[in-house]
């Protein structure tokens, strides 16, 4: 009959969007958007929907072992477009096997890659559909 006091090892506020983003604020992050874009910037503010304010943002383009940066400035990202945020280890970030290239160079390569991937996904979706799987209604790169 005795219900007793339920132990609660973690306070409820730990399980909020705010708490998750809290220690990412003022940190250098990589933000991957649903369209596959990668932004690198400092998270300055957020809200309960994980809408984000980024500062000193650069968009980093990748293609195989090349990368290029496009300075972008301040971003307000609507939360739904975010795939993930990752905190960058400042010590490790420069130890990359990637090589800096010009934006144009990568841009072209990336375009081709993304087209290819879209093609692939389309094919996959068709195949899955034929097997009775409904494709995810949107392509996430």
């Amino acid at each position: 009959m005795d219900v007793g006091i339920l132990p609660e090892p973690l306070p409820p506020q730990v399980f909020t969007t705010g708490a998750q983003l809290l220690d990412l604020t003022d940190k250098k992050l990589v933000i991957v958007l649903r369209d596959g874009r990668k932004l690198i910037g400092v998270l300055r503010s957020y809200d309960q929907y994980a809408n984000l304010v980024l500062q000193d943002t650069v968009e980093r383009l990748y293609s195989q072992n090349l990368y290029a940066d496009v300075p972008r400035g301040v971003y307000i990202v609507r939360g739904e477009n975010v795939l993930l945020l990752g905190e960058i280890d400042l010590d490790k970030e420069d130890d990359t096997p990637l090589q800096l290239a010009s934006v144009d160079e990568i841009y072209d390569a990336q375009k081709a890659e993304s087209a290819q991937k879209k093609q692939r996904e389309k094919k996959k979706a068709r195949k899955l559909h034929s097997l009775g799987f409904e494709a995810e209604n949107e392509l996430i790169l």
Binding site: A50, E80, L84, G86, E87, T96
Partner: peptide
């Protein structure tokens, strides 16, 4: 170089 992530 990412050590922790927040995933939507």
């Amino acid at each position: 170089a990412v050590k922790n992530v927040f995933i939507r």
